[in-house]
Design a protein around this nucleic acid. Sequence first.
DNA 1: TTTATTAGTTAGTATAAACTAACTATATTT
DNA 2: AAATATAGTTAGTTTATACTAACTAATAAA
Lengths: 138, 138
Amino acid sequence: MESLVTIVSKLSNLFGQSEESAKEQFHLISLTHTQMHYLETINLLHNPNITELARSLKLTKPTVKVAVDKFIEKDFLYKIQSDEDRRSAHLHLTEKGKLINQMHDYFHKRIAELFSRKLNKEELETLVGLLNKVLSEK
Amino acid sequence: MESLVTIVSKLSNLFGQSEESAKEQFHLISLTHTQMHYLETINLLHNPNITELARSLKLTKPTVKVAVDKFIEKDFLYKIQSDEDRRSAHLHLTEKGKLINQMHDYFHKRIAELFSRKLNKEELETLVGLLNKVLSEK
DNA sequence: TTTATTAGTTAGTATAAACTAACTATATTT
DNA sequence: AAATATAGTTAGTTTATACTAACTAATAAA
């Protein structure tokens, strides 16, 4: 059990460092952790309005409004007015905003590559099977 | 290969969520990500002085000084004047400051428990072996 | 011993990140 | 039609996070 906890700790560090390095690679160092979280959440929610985004982030609407305005200013986001409800507008990621997803994909690929490099085909299949079991529901 | 990247992505999410939930459990939600990073780095460096901490965090000394003063104010850190060099002081974590490490330990244990719950003894040994191989040097 | 370097601090500035209170305009309920 | 609720905004405030420039005190080099 002791060795398992140690491995989890090392794995956690690997993920953290790998994400940091991917962030550099994609020239996203200027973004704070909070800002990354905004863009990730907008991507996850699929063009939310400000109310939905604020609820998901557990922040107030004025707080989110200020942040969103800065993203629009910096060309990471744009708004589209809703047809159904003219009070509301949906947030969309620009190409620049989508960089964050690409960065995540890259970072996951890099770790997958490390796995592939260290293990042979058979070992890799075993590992995938076991991790799938760990990550399965319930 | 596709499935491996998917698993890495899920694993990454598991780690992220697990850390968030551990942070709540330890009443550390009031700390920002940046502040967590300070305390983690101080722990890692083992009682650094401000110059060493600033270098490691890649920030200027005045920036770090301001942050450290707030931590001292809030009883997360204390300073001990150096005997060898009377200009310098070493930073120490208080019991409250050490909560961050305990939180990390807890979060790693929780993930280790999930692994143990989903796999039998034999599978667990195989997984530990494979992950060790992945995490080995070079 | 004078000079240069180093550790830490102080002061001033800028931006990010959060809040509450109060507002406008549109939609919904009564 | 009038009252209520909702989406978004504006204004004002606080604290965190970063910087540069300039300083004091102690140490190391010339």
